[in-house]
Design a protein around this nucleic acid. Structure first.
Ligand SMILES: [Zn+2]
Ligand SMILES: [Zn+2]
Ligand SMILES: [Zn+2]
Ligand SMILES: [Zn+2]
Lengths: 165, 165
DNA sequence: AGGCATAGTGTTATATTATAACGTATCGAA
DNA sequence: TTCGATACGTTATAATATAACACTATGCCT
């Protein structure tokens, strides 16, 4: 039960995020079960940190959260990076290259390259759906075999344009 | 006299690069003159390092080249980063976000977002021409005001596919 | 020419992001 | 239950990037 698909610009809209969050976590759990993969406590912890918002977080921000919430436990960078690597490989999160940051995927499991609109004012990031077909066709024309695509558009979102008058 | 425009996949083709290089440097010089900007010795040095090939270089690779060729002189990171920033702001080079690297622009001066095909085998990078209109239209639809776009497609180029059998 | 504002450079130190290497623990299958 | 594989924990270090501040060259005004 994948639920209603999220609109692509979800991050830019008010929505019941508590619910959104639960839903995404449950989709992730199910997806790992189907793929016979282990969504371990650590990995879930990292995923949850990212699911807390639709904003990107740096690896060290996540690290800080883990260390905050974890009492005396000391968590070191490799732990976070390994969890991030796993979550990326399964399409549960994405890396925002132009920010050295990570963000939860709103269409978990689609491993193909996502496309992002990044507001440089409010810092929110919208993940668009679908592929950039025109571009992929162009690559194909040149005989280029596409592996992975990074598409990150920076600018100002509709909301922030209003407020900036 | 901007010369013949380069085909977008120039980096993937054999060509008289000595000539290509001279041409790009002269275009850069002219462009800076037109814009009343100073293409200082340092900036030219960094640009030349990037013009030596159509491959991306890390900031520290450039740094190393400067220190090699410069006898006893010691060049420190900020010098390189500042030159890179200038060259990027004028559209003479681009940053490849997914590689933390920089590459000379094959259409110097066009400040809009470029698009790249990156071969993960031979490491060559082709800069495509033009914008990704479909995507920009989609952003527009959402009321998003685009500033800058990053498009980086990783895969295997035609040549490397042949050799890999 | 002299004085001034600005932009560019040099230098030191440090911040930020990411990985190597290696040992231990955990899990699931035989 | 033993074994192999995967995941985790730990330490150290690599790679990338910037802050801060002093000094210098350049262009402009007078
Ligand atoms: Zn949400
Ligand atoms: Zn915004
Ligand atoms: Zn060339
Ligand atoms: Zn190739």
């Amino acid at each position: 039960m994948p639920g209603k698909p999220r609109p692509p610009e979800i991050a830019f809209r008010k929505h019941d995020h508590r619910r959104c969050q639960r839903q995404l976590l449950s989709e992730a759990t199910q997806l790992c079960a189907e793929r016979k993969l282990r969504l371990t406590a650590r990995r879930r912890q990292v995923l949850e940190a990212l699911l807390a918002s639709h904003q990107p977080m740096g690896a060290y921000d996540i690290l800080a959260e883990l260390n905050q919430s974890a009492g005396e436990e000391h968590v070191a960078p490799p732990i976070v990076y390994r969890a991030l690597e796993f979550l990326m490989s399964e399409g549960l999160i994405h890396r925002i290259e132009s920010r050295n940051a990570f963000i939860s995927c709103v269409q978990p499991g689609h491993r193909c390259g996502a496309q992002f609109l990044i507001c440089r004012d409010c810092e929110q990031v919208a993940e668009l759906e679908g592929n950039d077909d025109g571009l992929l066709a162009e690559a194909d024309n040149l005989g280029f075999a596409v592996d992975h695509s990074v598409v990150e558009i920076t600018g100002v979102c509709a909301e922030c344009q209003k407020h900036a008058g």
